[in-house]
Amino acid sequence: MAAPNYITAYAKIRSGKVILNGETGYSANADEPAADFVKAAYKHYELNYPKFYKMDQLCRLAFVCSELLLRANKVTANYATEDIAIIVANNAASLEIDTEHQSTIADADNYFPSPAVFVYTLPNILIGEIAIRNSIKGENTFFIFDTFDPRFMNSYIHSMLNTGRAKCCIAGWVDFYENKYDAFLYTVEQTNNGLGIAHTEEQLNNLYK
């Protein structure tokens, strides 16, 4: 029988709220523009990472969510950096910044593509930002789905942990497009070093809601 795995911490950012392990932290009016809200949360939690301002909106959202998750559960202190995997999915890929890049190259007479914008035109860059920030060198994969898929994520992460490809996984969903944002990141470990929630499709569904 496969070993059980545990969801040991989780963080959510959506609808003007930051939720950490079920507790609401920083909140604002749900109508506040997404970019402003994420920046305000970054300042509220004093995350202090100058590169934040250079990131696109998708990476900023992922960065804030991951910082809070890893403050709540310091997996980087408990595992070798090669043993921590990062598996994230979303719906819009990097469409928000792709659109911005397109606007800089649409007019042949005003053709000034920005290198700093272009480097973010792939969604898996957000995994890179988290990995660089935390010196994580384990396996990483980015998936595109219509919606958060607890069945797939559950199965994929179980497989990673139970076949020894990772000892800990930072996983979840980070989506940002046209002022809509939704981040849900969680840590999965083979031993219970936190919340001790069984890593199952049903629990993932419950926590994501």
Binding site: P50, K54, F112, P113, S114, P115, A116, V119
Partner: peptide, 17 residues
């Protein structure tokens, strides 16, 4: 200012634009 290689490219674009 601690700028990086991408910033260098941005400065080149700034001069042209």
């Amino acid at each position: 200012l601690g700028l990086d290689s991408i910033d260098a490219l941005e400065l080149i674009v700034l001069l042209e634009k």
